[in-house]
């Protein structure tokens, strides 16, 4: 019997598999394909204080081993989430996290305050790294001062586990991670998407309405892995790793690099039951290599 339980700085995970915000809807989109209760957790769509229509179509372009998106945080706002969506999902026996985003610090704070009141939401993921909104989002996550400002303000009102999602579009992700740790973040998740673009050579037009968008998928995995390794060595709070995970070996790699848990993102679009296949793959790996406790893999890179 392999122990897959992880104490993620107070957040009790039955296994290291979570799903990435924006790739998993509100969970229920996947209930035809998997038993959501088997997940370590799922992170629902980026939620803002007010309703957002997001960016115009086209919002997606497939690229080599990846995809660009420019959805732009389309969501119905935190009130609709609390009143209509939360009651539908709150009884799943797994950790449900809400990804919280905003344009100004006050919006993050108001949204986090409202989520704080929801009994069955044990944590939020503070999104200071969305590359697809004009104001806020990634702007907060690309300098230590602004990252500190928003984390400090949210920390005052949010009493449960505060995970902060970091942007890879920075010169030094380690310094940002240290800044948010200093302001009281309970964990960090990394990486969000990489800013990229795609052009249609025939029409000479950009493939996204916003010209640039966020790159995800296996194309970004080696960079994400490197960043997780650098950050995990530098901070004392646990790291949730993500970026191009497609299979169980990818998860093991992220854990060896120092992640205590992971998020599956773009892979959900291709295989809606991939999370459970990966979970079974991890159990298989542990049996095959004699790993009795998944925690033994965290940061166990032999270098």
């Amino acid at each position: 019997m392999v122990n897959l339980n992880i104490d993620f700085n107070g957040l009790k995970l039955k296994n290291p598999i979570l799903t990435a915000s924006g790739t998993f809807g509100y969970g229920t989109e996947f209930s035809d394909f998997i038993d959501l209760n088997r997940l370590g957790g799922f992170i629902v769509k980026g939620t803002t204080l007010h309703h957002r229509e997001g960016n115009p179509y086209p919002r997606m372009a497939e690229t080599a081993s990846g995809m660009l998106n420019a959805v732009g945080l389309q969501n119905k706002g935190v009130e609709v989430f609390c009143k209509s969506i939360y009651p539908e999902i709150k009884d799943y026996n797994t950790n449900i996290l809400v990804n919280v985003s905003g344009s100004v610090v006050e919006d993050y704070v108001s949204t986090a305050e409202m989520i704080n009141e929801l009994e069955n939401i044990p944590a939020i993921e503070l999104n200071i790294s969305c590359p697809n909104v004009k104001e806020g989002g990634m702007a907060f996550g690309t300098s230590c001062a602004s990252a500190e400002e928003v984390v400090k303000a949210v920390r005052k009102v949010y009493k449960k586990h505060l995970m902060v999602k970091l942007s890879p579009n920075v010169t030094d992700i380690v310094s940002i991670a240290k800044s948010v740790e200093l302001q009281g973040a309970d964990s960090v998740s990394l990486v969000n998407t990489f800013l990229g673009m795609a052009i249609d050579a025939k029409t000479r037009k950009p493939k996204l309405s916003t010209v640039t968008g966020g790159l995800s998928g296996p194309a970004i995995k080696p960079i994400a892995l490197r960043m997780v390794w650098q950050v995990a060595k530098a901070v004392n709070i646990p790291v949730c790793g993500l970026g191009g995970i497609m299979n169980a070996d990818d998860v093991i790699e992220f854990m060896l690099a120092g992640a205590s848990c992971v998020q599956i993102g773009t892979a959900n679009f291709i295989e809606p039951d991939i999370t459970i296949k990966i979970l079974e793959g991890i159990e298989h790996y542990c049996r095959k290599f004699g790993v009795k406790d998944i925690n033994d893999l965290i940061g166990a890179l032999d270098s």
């Binding site: 924006g22 998993f24 997606m60």
Partner: peptide, 11 residues
């Protein structure tokens, strides 16, 4: 991308 209402790309 997904076809099942998760990615919000095809709006």
């Amino acid at each position: 991308a997904c076809g099942i209402g998760a990615c919000l790309c095809c709006v």
